[in-house]
């Protein structure tokens, strides 16, 4: 692991009117690691990643990339800096085929008689290449609409869209396994490991501690808007993390 975190959030506070969603939260993620963010509903997980991906601006606190202070005024800024997210809904257009979805909003084009048209062939071959090379996924048919794919395959298409950008360094995944069966979950966790091996920092939000302990290197525990601890999965247990989530430790003390 490198000494300087790839991305670091320091003293992040976010208030919505009188409600404090995040209070003085620190978070750092390194290249080639999976950082899990866990916590109960309303613990501030989603707000935290929305600040990281530029959707929200922090009330206080700063974000550092490679040790340099950065500011995101919107999601596009964060994407430019190499931070992207795969949403729980995946943001796929179900009637379009995987290639169209992978390049949605960012289509490859070519010129035909001076007119710019979509290069469907190139998008298809690129989709096939990225799915294979980066994620080790091979779809049976690239012509079928996306809603005919399985949950795991849809996940793969959404991830492929994020990793296609050469500059991607931090990938945030919001509850990627929430809607999946056991087999699909295993496949998605495999994808996450593959991304980690490629040197990405993966930030995983999950309710499933089993998944977290399978893929994550560290666990960041949120409770009532605050970070109550960061544990190394190798040196911790689900019991301990669960205790931190529900606040058993504090109450006992």
């Amino acid at each position: 692991m490198a000494d300087t975190p790839l991305v670091q959030m320091r003293g992040i506070t976010k208030r919505f009117g009188g409600v404090t969603a995040l209070q003085n939260v620190d978070l750092s993620a390194y290249a080639g690691e999976v950082l899990a963010i866990v916590g109960d509903n309303g613990a501030g997980k989603s707000t935290l990643i929305k600040v990281l991906t530029g959707v929200y601006q922090p009330t206080e606190g700063d974000i550092y990339i490679d040790g340099e202070k950065t500011e995101f005024s919107n999601h596009a800024d964060a994407a430019k800096a190499g931070i992207d997210a795969v949403y729980q809904t995946l943001a796929l257009a179900d009637h379009l085929d995987p290639a169209a979805n992978m390049f949605l909003g960012n289509e490859l084009t070519k010129k035909v008689f001076g007119i710019t048209v979509l290069d469907n062939k190139k998008m298809r071959s690129e989709t096939e290449r990225v799915l294979m090379e980066r994620l080790g996924v091979r779809l049976k048919s690239l012509d079928a609409p996306t809603d005919s794919l399985s949950g795991g395959q849809r996940q793969a298409v959404a991830i492929a869209r994020a990793v296609y950008h050469e500059g991607l360094r931090v990938l945030v995944m919001d509850e990627p396994t929430a809607a999946l069966g056991p087999q699909e979950t295993a496949r998605t966790l495999k994808l996450i490991k593959a991304l980690k091996a490629q040197g990405l920092a993966v930030i995983l939000i999950s309710h499933s501690l089993d998944d977290v302990f399978e893929v994550a290197d560290r666990v960041h525990v949120q409770r009532r808007g605050q970070c109550v601890g960061v544990a190394l999965t190798a040196e911790s247990s689900t019991q301990e993390v669960l205790g931190m989530i529900v606040g058993a430790k504090e109450d006992a003390a």
Partner: peptide
């Protein structure tokens, strides 16, 4: 097609 398929997704992809 994308807008008709899912306006929210279309919005999210910019």
């Amino acid at each position: 097609v994308a807008i008709g398929s899912s306006p929210e997704s279309a919005e999210l992809t910019g």
